[in-house]
């Protein structure tokens, strides 16, 4: 009995934490979403969400998040694979992760410097004779910087999955006649798919709601759901609409987590 009671006691701080910082905010967001800009209870925000303006925004958010995730994955998987083959893999991994400790805003400003009209990238282009180009405030720079930011989060779970992969499986596939590529396609990749899934989750979901980068790097040329929420809360003061978009964002995230949910396979 005593044991049960102490266990209940230990649980209190966590339950409080979840209640205060997870449940209550979500309920608040839900609550606000039912009020229009004048403060009257209505479903007008939900109607507005299904107008072309917001649907297009949702679609564009998805598109960029997809691009960012796909490019990150294409870069991260081979990198993680090479990492597991290096002698000091933990050190290399650390070097890749270190940039993720730096504040996002600092990194964004650093890229403004690099991509700016008189930045390092343009000096280089001039030097090799291509000449100065508009790099900042383009789709390219937005995707580039976003990928740069998300790569460590993508590499880490994939690296872990590859690192845990029993090397005998690779021998076994070889032994049964599989070439390097077949081994990768039929054994290595399927067995590390859980790492890929969590990597995609931690990239795609935040990428959907990116907002600071859209202004600093993409110069508001890219409007995502995240940007829109920010604008509604801070600029137009339409908290109801902002909350409505947030509600949809939460629903989408939950859906993605369910779809890409990891099922642990026992061996």
């Amino acid at each position: 009995m005593e044991n049960k009671r102490t266990r209940g006691l230990y649980r209190i701080p966590y339950l409080l934490w979840i209640l205060l910082f997870v449940v209550v905010p979500i309920l608040l967001v839900l609550y606000y979403s039912f009020f229009d800009i004048e403060g009257n209870f209505s479903f007008v925000n939900y109607q507005k969400f299904f107008t072309p303006v917001y649907l297009k925004m949702t679609l564009s958010s998805f598109w960029y998040a997809f691009l960012i995730t796909a490019i990150s994955l294409l870069i991260s998987y081979p990198t993680a694979y090479l990492l597991t083959k290096t002698r000091h893999k933990q050190l290399w991994l650390l070097l890749i992760i270190v940039p993720s400790w730096i504040n996002l805003l600092l990194k964004a400003y650093a890229f403004i410097g690099i991509f700016g009209t008189y930045g390092a990238a343009n000096s280089f282009l001039k030097m090799i004779g291509i000449g100065s180009r508009q790099i900042l405030f383009t789709d390219f720079s937005f995707v580039f910087v976003s990928v740069y930011i998300f790569i460590p989060f993508m590499i880490l779970p994939i690296f872990n999955a590859l690192n845990e992969l029993n090397p005998t499986f690779i021998d076994a596939a070889n032994d049964l006649g599989a070439s390097k590529w077949t081994t990768f396609r039929r054994v290595i990749f399927p067995l590390t798919i859980d790492g890929v899934k969590s990597g995609c989750q931690v990239t795609f979901i935040p990428a959907l709601s990116l907002f600071m980068l859209t202004r600093l790097i993409a110069g508001n040329r890219v409007i995502t759901l995240g940007t829109s929420i920010e604008q509604h809360f801070l600029v137009t003061q339409d908290w109801g609409m902002g909350s409505t978009i947030a509600v949809f964002l939460i629903i989408i995230m939950v859906l993605i987590m369910v779809v890409t949910g990891t099922r642990k396979r026992g061996v």
């Binding site: 499986f169 021998d171 070889n174 032994d175 006649g177 399927p190």
Partner: peptide, 20 residues
């Protein structure tokens, strides 16, 4: 000659059966 081109097959110590 690489392993995948040889006329031998191995039964591994931990069996190495593909879990997927």
């Amino acid at each position: 000659i690489p392993a995948n081109k040889r006329q031998v097959n191995t039964v591994f110590q931990d069996y190495a059966l593909f879990p997927h």
